[in-house]
Design a protein around this nucleic acid. Sequence first.
DNA 1: ACGGTTATTAACTATTAATTTAATATCTAG
DNA 2: CTAGATATTAAATTAATAGTTAATAACCGT
Lengths: 208, 208
Amino acid sequence: MKLIKKRNPEKTAKTILAAATTEFAKFGFGGARIDIIADRAQSNKRLIYHYFGSKEDLFLAVLEYAYSKIRHHEANLNLEKLSPKDAIKKLVNFTFNYYLNNQDFIRLLNSENLLNAKHLKQSNKILKMQMPLLSKLDAILIDGIKAGVFRHDVKAIDLHITIAALGYFYLSNANTLAAVFKKNLKSKNSLKQRSQHIEDVILGYLRP
Amino acid sequence: MKLIKKRNPEKTAKTILAAATTEFAKFGFGGARIDIIADRAQSNKRLIYHYFGSKEDLFLAVLEYAYSKIRHHEANLNLEKLSPKDAIKKLVNFTFNYYLNNQDFIRLLNSENLLNAKHLKQSNKILKMQMPLLSKLDAILIDGIKAGVFRHDVKAIDLHITIAALGYFYLSNANTLAAVFKKNLKSKNSLKQRSQHIEDVILGYLRP
DNA sequence: ACGGTTATTAACTATTAATTTAATATCTAG
DNA sequence: CTAGATATTAAATTAATAGTTAATAACCGT
């Protein structure tokens, strides 16, 4: 008689998703191994197919969950309560720190971009997630422009991408940059400096 | 009697390197197929091992060659002849356009970063390549600060990374951003706007 | 308490792909 | 002109690995 665990479908699926996140982040879509995900989840390969269908569908589930997490955090920043300048400062610092503390997210996105976002393109959940932040940012910029503290030609989507770029690139390319500059970009000191530089760039740019 | 091509070792190696660049850029290190590289180079799998040793060594050769190309272009910009502001403008626009016209380079770097730069870290050629541009940029900044057209707290390495980040991230993540924003970021118009925005950000930031 | 549904397990399969072996042809130095 | 070195080719090898099959156990409504 074989030993079979007590059933717990939801927990099993969640554990698989978490193990898959780690594995995909470490090795990318192609490099990730279904066997390893199953082992790490203390589960069975067959269950991955049972719950998620295929390696590709599993990867999409991982991506969707990763996006939902960052959007959720962003939604809780309460930027509305702050002055335009403080709101931008808070958003900029949050963004850098989120990437820093969730480098799995960066690696998942890099892997997906290498695949031309073929999984995300199929997702209908993703589309709706992004809009809230973008319109919030738009409102902040309008306020700031009216108050005369921001330059007039700034667009929300441009700024959003730029804020992301400044931290994301630094972290996602830290390894090649380190090889090229022979400098450890992830030391506490380097990170603090980068964070300050990013704030300076965004606020410096926004000056009227 | 089998037909065997006339010998041409140098051309063979070069052709393999070019085919490998395309293949690695398209599919990343893990996704690239030695068979396909051999076919595309109208060559033979065995020759890849003959000339390059292994898939990993081939990838490193591809990376080193890709870096040497961009550094070579940068070296020919003749920034010294321009005013500090014009020099920065030229560098910023060159950088974006180079990435735009050489997206293989971006994809190679993304793939290498997903592998924690394990190949580049072994390279001794790479180290020496980067320094010329960085010291040139440093000279430009010092001039600009003296002339009172640049802010006093700007550091060459920070600015260099930031200039790279603004274009690189936009292009490397264009596919996921497009999925999320439902917008084609690679249309002629979007690219022109982005290019202008990047210039605005850098020059806006640099104001004293 | 039992029968259908769903969760779980282990073992199998078919395929793919990096690397090697071994055979043959071309080149080049003396 | 010939022998050793190098370039080229085709085919074999070996190791992984995504996905499947089939068997069994737990759950749950009635």
